[in-house]
Amino acid sequence: MFDLLGTKLASRLLLGTAQYPSPATLADAVEASGTSVVTVSLRREMAGGKAGERFWSLIRSLGVSVLPNTAGCHSVKEAVTTANMAREVFDTSWIKLEVIGNHDTLQPDVFGLVEAARILCDDGFDVFPYTTDDLVVAERLLEAGCKVLMPWCAPIGSALGPVNIMALRSMRGHFPDIPLIVDAGLGRPSHAATVMELGFDAVLLNTAVAKAADPVGMARAFAKAVDAGREAYGSGLIEPRDVAVPSTPTIGRAVFS
């Protein structure tokens, strides 16, 4: 079991709920992934409450915890207000804090992120900050009261996978006791396995599953990759070498000439 801020989770895969071809596929993908936590958002309700009701009923029927986000917020004020609205609607102190700083890369505005995190932590939120792999920013977020960090490994929805392994490895090394969740940029199950092998505690992904030709199959594949990466990390990976080393014993080798 994975202990995330006092909550015991059966899975180390957190799944987004956006972009699926249908609500039924979303439900099937959530089940196939084995996830314990899904991310949700708040948006303008244009159908008198009925659009939100349909989605919220579906999510509640899945028996998973929700992690509301502040996606699309570009200022501290927007993010803090959205977080407070999410806390009321979803009845949780968890918030995936996004303060976006760049339209093209959806890179977090780390200065606004730290400021918003401090306000929300002081107000009793459990803040899951969507951040970069910058160590100093990570330290500031921890000082602000965050108990978990969610660095990107590549831009949201890019499917590039971990583009800076050294930075991710460095984060793990610097913060051995902080839950680290790779959020954003994963495109393939092998990407998830790679970051789990580095010792990350979990991954959060959405597009790679939702936009796959078969989201349910891809959800299952990611679940296996996350488990495989985690078990590999716990089992002690060998270090790569530049020379060949025979795996079959050389002693007792037959001589035919």
């Binding site: 987004g16 709920t17 956006a18 972009q19 699926y20 979303l26 991310t39 949700v40 958002s41 708040l42 948006r43 303008r44 309700e45 409450g49 659009a51 939100g52 009701e53 989605f55 919220w56 999510i59 509301p68 986000n69 996606a71 207000t81 959205t82 407070n84 609205m85 009321e88 609607v89 979803f90 949201i156 929805g157 959405n206 597009t207």
Partner: peptide, 27 residues
Amino acid sequence: VVPAAERAEFRLSDGDRIEILSPMQGG
């Protein structure tokens, strides 16, 4: 934010900007 419990007593003024949000898909 105006919490649900405070909506009944929250008086509106001309030109107010109101946001009404509900749960939606998110990543």
